[in-house]
């Protein structure tokens, strides 16, 4: 359990948010060209990092907006919060 500083609403309990998984996975530009291996990579393979991870969250019980956070998954400490479309900060 931890607090998340929503870039639109401010600091709220994590239970107000929905985790959206690993961030910066880019949807293939030409899906029809993709091999099965590339589809598997896009759909299923995850870094699942123990340590600093970039991830998407949605404030579902608040403003319902998506944004990104940088979190240390070994202790749930949040290092940075940044809006969608912005470049990930250096941590």
């Amino acid at each position: 359990m931890f607090l998340i500083n929503c870039p639109f609403c401010g600091e709220r309990e994590q239970s107000e948010f929905k985790a959206g998984g690993e961030a910066h996975i880019v949807r293939p530009k030409q899906p029809t060209e993709l091999s099965d291996d590339e589809w598997a990579e896009y759909l299923f393979m995850r870094k699942n990092i123990k340590g600093i991870q970039f991830e998407r969250w949605n404030h579902i019980h608040g403003c319902r907006k998506w944004f990104n956070i940088v979190r240390d998954t070994s202790n749930d400490e949040i290092k940075a919060v940044y809006k969608m479309g912005k470049k990930p900060p250096l941590v």
Binding site: M1, S15, A19, G21, E22, Q53, E55, S74, D76
Partner: peptide, 14 residues
């Protein structure tokens, strides 16, 4: 389960 990746061996109270 919680819906976020974590290795902290503790989950959320809710």
């Amino acid at each position: 389960t919680d819906d976020y990746v974590s290795y902290s061996q503790k989950g959320s109270h809710d």
